[in-house]
Nucleic acid binder design. Structure first.
Lengths: 212, 212
DNA sequence: GTCTATAACGAGATAGAC
DNA sequence: GTCTATCTCGTTATAGAC
């Protein structure tokens, strides 16, 4: 066994090089794709040589895997945090859409949406990590949809799973198409339309209408 | 001026090399992205050297531009042809979705959806051609939505333009997310849901148009 | 941890023969 | 139209000094 752990709150005061590398590589991957940048690009921005990069991440594949895992971890934390602030399903969906909108507003594509396009060219560990991201999205949204329908706050047909997939697909797709036009409103407008559809007229929810 | 045109049906009996190059490059671009293949990949499949490739397409940028323009041209022809066979708006939307579903079924991403991800890394002529593709999509769909609503066959809120953008975004997004799972049903299921939503019998339409 | 130097390879592209 | 030969540059990665 290792020594007893004594100090859980021991945050390193200095921004470690590995983190700065991840920050730069993440932005490059989100704006240019995994195949659209090189170690030389990162080294120029971070201020160390490409040889030093290899000290922190043995290969580009290893760096890519770390990128996706950190991204998924942060996203999961954001979703968990959201649950402590937003109670009802429509608010949670709006907040979920806002997360995506913020990414687009910073002129980036969702990291995993971008990597999904390049999926067939990526090393298997990255492929698995990408699916994990979308699986986590689907699980979280499915829960929101199920509870939202049960509470009469959301109206939709079919399974919560399919509704969740549609929600993510539409947000990813609108990010994808918004960037060529430099027009983030292409996402926010679509998100508003979807949410309005889900919360439209209570006619189909608690009024005794069959929900199918 | 040129000689009088006498024989409209004059199909070249031989598949020209340039076309075979385009066919191979198109598939590579749709499956691996524009930055995911090289002239060497194409030359190996077509059976000529990379030097010969440069005879047909002076640069990869020129080849890329030709790819998008041919793709857009074929897509426009498919939409025009559709108008001769499908009259009502719901049928046209279903057919439009089927076009996208066929691409996915062949294990490819929409060429321009793929290139939209890599947009920032592409030469300006390709960027313009990509926007042209989506503009054409939007124009065609906007017309379908406008006429469909006027005829009482489609029910949606907001502008036809926004409905059109949502339709394409959702199809592109579901293609994007379906490929990591090798599951084309992720698109068809979403398409069915969207269409059902648009044709759900609202207060004022023709007789029930729901087809499922 | 970071450096210099370099290996080993692949990329897009060109010249000129056939 | 296609070839061989070659160029130049960029890429990932390693060895070994500091």
């Amino acid at each position: 066994m290792a020594k007893a752990v004594r100090r859980p709150p021991a945050p390193p005061p200095v921004p470690r090089t590995a983190d700065r590398v991840l920050d730069v590589a993440e932005r490059l991957a989100q704006t240019r794709g995994f195949n659209g940048w090189s170690y030389a690009d990162v080294s120029a921005e971070v201020g160390i040589t490409t040889a030093s990069l290899h000290y922190h991440f043995a290969s580009k594949a290893a760096l890519g895997r770390a990128l996706v895992e950190r991204y998924t971890s942060r996203f999961g934390a954001a979703l968990a945090d959201m649950a402590t602030r937003q109670a009802d399903a429509p608010s949670r969906l709006a907040e979920y859409a806002r997360l995506y909108g913020d990414v687009l507003a910073s002129d980036r594509m969702c990291l995993c949406g971008m990597l999904a396009a390049e999926y067939q060219t990526l090393p298997p560990p990255m492929q698995r990590a990408i699916r994990d991201y979308f699986d986590a999205n689907e699980a979280w949204l499915r829960d929101v949809f199920e509870r939202g329908r049960a509470a009469g706050a959301l109206a939709f047909t079919g399974t919560a799973r399919d509704a969740a997939r549609q929600w993510t697909s539409t947000l990813e797709g609108s990010m994808l198409l918004a960037r060529p036009y430099g027009d983030p409103s292409r996402l926010t407008t679509v998100a508003r339309r979807m949410l309005a559809e889900l919360t439209r007229a209570p006619a189909a929810t608690a009024k005794g209408r069959l929900r199918r």
